[in-house]
Structure formats: C-alpha cells, structure tokens
Design a protein around this nucleic acid. Structure first.
Length: 500
RNA sequence: GGUCCCAUCGUCUAGUGGCCUAGGACGCUGGUCUCUCAAGCCGGAAACAGGGGUUCGAAUCCCCUUGGGACCGCCA
C-alpha cells in the first residue's frame, strides 16, 4: 500500500509532506553537464529531506525522440551515483491520462478546439514578425459556433485543443532562487494543450504529470521560467495546488552562450571517457552555481547535509574545465588506490595502451601502486594509465629529445656500470630504500652526484624525463627489467664530426 | 523586435548597511623543496560594470544606463 501523498503528522503536529522531486529529461540527446547538475540538485534535495527522487522521460515529440538514448541517460545518472526512487516514467505511455484531463478542461469551458492549420498559423506568425509585433495566437477559433465547427470537421480538419488564457491581470511565479517574478497575462496567448493528433504539448503534460505524481518541488533549468506562468494557469484551471518552483541558472560555455556541441565536451559520458572521476564531476557541478561559504571540497554526504535551494545563485555560471581537472586530481590523490588502480587498468585497456594478455600478467597490487606513484602528477585516469604502462609492461617509447639529451655515450657507459653494480642486490631487497643507499654510495665512491645520473637513468627506464622519484621508479620497474633497460636503452647518436 | 532573467578578480564564489584597505578557490605568476616532473609550503598580480539617489555610512537598498543571457513552435 503506497503512502498517501497528503500532509504527514508527527505527534499530532502537521509537518510538510515528504518532498517529491523529479528529473525530467527528453531523450533527444545524451545527458549533458547542465542536465546532470539539474538532476544532482534534485537528488540532493530529495536525499536531504528524505524525500523521493523520480525520473520521467518527456518523450511526446515523436519526431525528435530517440528511444535508444534512454539507456545511456540512465547509465550517466547511475555513473554519477544519482539513483532514483521511482520511474522512469514515460509520457508516451500516459497519453490516456492527458486525454482525461484535457476532456475535463474542455467540458468546463477552460479549453476549446482550434481548427487553424499549422500553415495558417505560420503565415500569421510571419506577418506579425514582419510588422514587428509579438506573434501570439489571435483567438480565431475561440468563439466558433457549433455550425462552424461542424463545417471544419466536415472538411476533415482535426482540431488542436487550446487553453483559454485570461488575457488580463498578472501571474506571479514565486521562485525560490529568484523571488517573485511577475508576468502580464496579456503576454500569454491561448496556447495549445493537445495537438491535433492527440498528443499533449510539453506545458500540459508537465502539469498533469507533476500533479498526478505528487511533485512538491519543481527544480529545473532556467529556460523553463518563461513556461511557468502558463503552467500555473493550468494548475489553477485544474483547481490544483501549486508546487514550489526553483529555477536554476544555466550552465554556459566559455563564450557565455548556452553550452553546446561546438564547445567541445558537454556530455557526462565524454568526461567519463576522459578519465574524470564521478565524485569529481559531482563536486564540481554542485559548486557551480551553488555555494556553502568558502568550502570547495564536498563529499557526497556533506553535499546532502549542506545543500539547500536557497544556496543556489541566480546568475548563470561558466563551465571551467581547469577547475574540474583540479578537483579530479584532488580525488585521484585522496582516493583508494585499489579502486583507482582497477579504473586505471580499465582505461589502459580501453585506450589500447596495452593488450588484454599483457594486463593479465599484472597483479592488481601493481596497478594500485602505479596510482600511488603517479597521482600527484596526473589529472585524469587516462593520463595516469598512459604514464604507468611503460613501467608495467615491455612497452617503452623513448622520447627522441630525451634520448639525445641524456643518453649520451658517456652516460650510457655509466648506466652499464651501474647495472653491473646493481646485479648484486638480491631480488628480495630490491626496494627504494636499499637502492637509494646502494646508488648514493656507489656515486660517492666515484665522486659523482646524483644529479648526473638521475635523468639518464630515468630516461633509460621509462623513456621520458618526468616521473616519480628515481628510487621508487627503480623499485617499481623491478630488478630484471631495470637491469635490462639500463643496458639496452637506446643511445644518442654521436654528434657528427662536421658539427652540422 | 517583444518578454523575462542576470551583473564582485579571467573563472567559480564569500559578502545580506558599518567587521571590506573586499576574503577563499581554480588558473596565472615569484620563491621554496628537489634526481626530473608534479604535489606541498610561502608570497604576488587580479574584481564590487557606469551614473544617479536613500543613509551618518553602501559591494550590499531603490532608479536609470550599459553589457550579457534565455525564451518567443501543434519542440522540450
């Protein structure tokens, strides 16, 4: 038996009902970061107030609707950890419900059939624009006589259902993040509730759904603020109570326009593929347009505890990848190496940095250790995987410039010599500490400094000039592979006598 | 064009009339550490869009201007 949606009582005292919120994407594209943030705010609000977070797909537009996108959107939400409590519902499966409500409105004289064709409407719209007037429906079909209607029906015209707008007075949206926003009703024309083919339009379906699903707080993107007075009018016509509205500002690209494909990565999936951690994206998104004092780092639990609609800013925010990357590194640096190691392995495989057979030979511990070695110098899982592979496998790519600079014949000879010396260190004592003692002592005997050896050695071992500490690298690469690379690393070609 | 929204460093923001000589974070930058690169630590440059009010006092309240954005569909 589901709980009733009405007010709860606690020791006889009325308390507000459990909040019910929703995220309602339309399956016309992948989940982008703006949508993800809207979903996150809804989810946080629900978790904080122990309410219900539900999912609903607004898929009444058959032309643009792409059912195959539903699962990827769900997958994005799962990846972000925004699990839903109800749904997903599909508007396309609730058509009968909208029909009932439309019928009711019609019977009560709050809506009327309109026989204007899209072509006629388009012509009027163009004319209005040409005359620099705001295009609005002129109410042609509002006062049709029964005879006129019959004539249109006889012509085979299928009517759309239009809402009877008040045309005067004002409608005020009491928005939690913006305060009261006033709209003059004369700006609102007799908009369409149900298309001539029987499918509801967005504004109508949303109201019927939010109403019947018991939604108490509508938290959605700013672009819907302009729709809200229309929706309020429908609520009133239905004799229903209004939910609380909270319109969250848009997420903008660097050029201050709506984030879109041409701005590069916008989809949640793209960030996942680039090796961004979900906790980093969540933290970043939460802090984008919302703040809690000066705090920058929030665990999921802290977000739930500290989130509030009042903390949302009214102004739009620009998506800054640099800061996301910084947060990602923070979570790389503080995360569990075992878990991160598994992720790095996955990325190395997926990006083709190594083959499945090679990966099989590498124990989980090695990946975890690789994470520890590289996480202070890499910002994404992909970068980390790429850097770790040369130390984990036989795949070293020697950077030509590094070789030229550091693997001179003199240094190569030194490395040869070193490898001979290191031969005596037993496998069981092949540790950073032991190797450091060994090498520093060896250098001291020769009156040489670590400086002279470190870079050549690093390049011979890893192919590149940057990386973890030398001794840790030596330990991690392991005795056998280290000795081999010290002996077999490529050498800089000697400078030509002509000095070209 | 109409309607609506927005306005503190390049970016995210603290700030709710005196604590502001405007704080933090990212980024940038100088230094430090050092076997490299990072990370860390210490320091620096960097903002209240402009103009009028209100007030003893304004980043904070009001108005105008300017600038940005969103929406103007039988799309959502």
């Amino acid at each position: 038996m589901p709980e009733p949606l009405g007010p709860d009582t606690l020791d006889g005292i009325m308390v507000s009902p459990k909040p019910r919120v929703r995220f309602a994407p339309s399956p016309t594209g992948e989940l982008h970061v703006g949508g993800a943030r809207t979903a996150l705010f809804n989810w946080l609000f629900a978790r904080k107030h122990r309410g219900v977070f539900l999912l609903r797909f607004e898929d009444t537009d058959v032309e643009r609707n792409r059912p195959e996108l539903v699962e990827p959107i769900l997958e994005s939400l799962r990846w972000l950890g925004l699990e839903w409590d109800e749904g997903p519902y599909f508007q396309s499966q609730r058509l009968e419900l909208y029909r009932e409500y439309a019928q009711k409105l019609w019977e009560e004289g709050k809506a009327y059939p309109c026989y204007c064709t899209p072509e006629e409407l388009e012509a009027k719209r163009r004319q209005a624009l040409a005359e620099k007037r705001t295009p609005r429906y002129d109410g042609t079909c509002r006062h049709l006589t029964p005879e006129e209607r019959r004539r249109f029906e006889a012509e085979g015209r299928r009517p759309a259902l239009r809402f009877v707008s008040p045309g005067e007075g004002t409608t005020v949206v009491e928005d939690v993040v913006r305060g009261p926003v006033e709209f003059r009703n004369e700006e609102i024309d007799d908009f369409i509730l149900v298309r001539s083919d029987g499918r509801p339009t967005y504004n109508f379906a949303v109201v019927v759904d939010d109403l019947t699903m018991g939604i108490t707080h509508v938290i959605r993107a700013d672009e819907h603020l302009k729709n809200t007075p229309k929706q309020i009018l429908i609520y009133r016509a239905l004799g229903a109570e209004l939910p609380v509205f909270a319109h969250v500002p848009m997420v903008l690209a660097k050029d201050r326009t709506k984030l879109s494909k041409r701005h590069g990565a916008t989809a949640v999936f793209e960030y996942r593929e680039r090796g961004i951690l979900p906790e980093a994206l969540v933290n970043y998104l939460a802090r984008l347009g919302w703040s809690y004092g000066d705090q920058e780092i929030f665990s999921r639990e802290e977000l739930i505890e500290k989130f509030s609609l009042e903390g949302i800013h009214p102004s739009p925010a620009i998506f800054d990848e640099e800061k996301l990357l910084w947060l990602n590194q923070h979570y790389l640096k503080t995360g569990d190496p075992q878990r991160l190691g598994r992720l790095v392995r996955e990325f190395a495989l997926k990006r083709g940095f190594l083959a499945e057979e090679e990966a099989e030979e590498i124990p989980e511990e090695r990946w975890a250790r690789a994470v520890e070695l590289f996480r202070e110098r890499k910002r994404t899982l992909v970068e980390l995987a790429e850097a770790a592979v040369p130390l984990l496998t036989e795949r070293v790519e020697y950077d030509a410039k590094a070789v030229t600079k550091f693997l001179t014949s003199e240094k190569a000879a030194l490395l040869q010599e070193l490898s001979g010396h290191l031969e005596s260190v037993p496998n069981s004592e092949w540790t950073a500490e032991r190797l450091e003692r060994e090498i520093r002592g060896w250098l001291a005997e020769r009156g040489r400094e670590l400086k002279e050896l470190a870079q050549p050695c690093r390049v011979a071992l890893t192919g590149v000039t940057r990386g973890p500490g030398l001794f840790e690298t030596l330990e991690f690469v392991g005795k056998e592979r280290t000795l081999r690379r010290l002996r077999q690393a490529p050498q800089a070609s000697p400078p030509s006598p002509a000095g070209s």
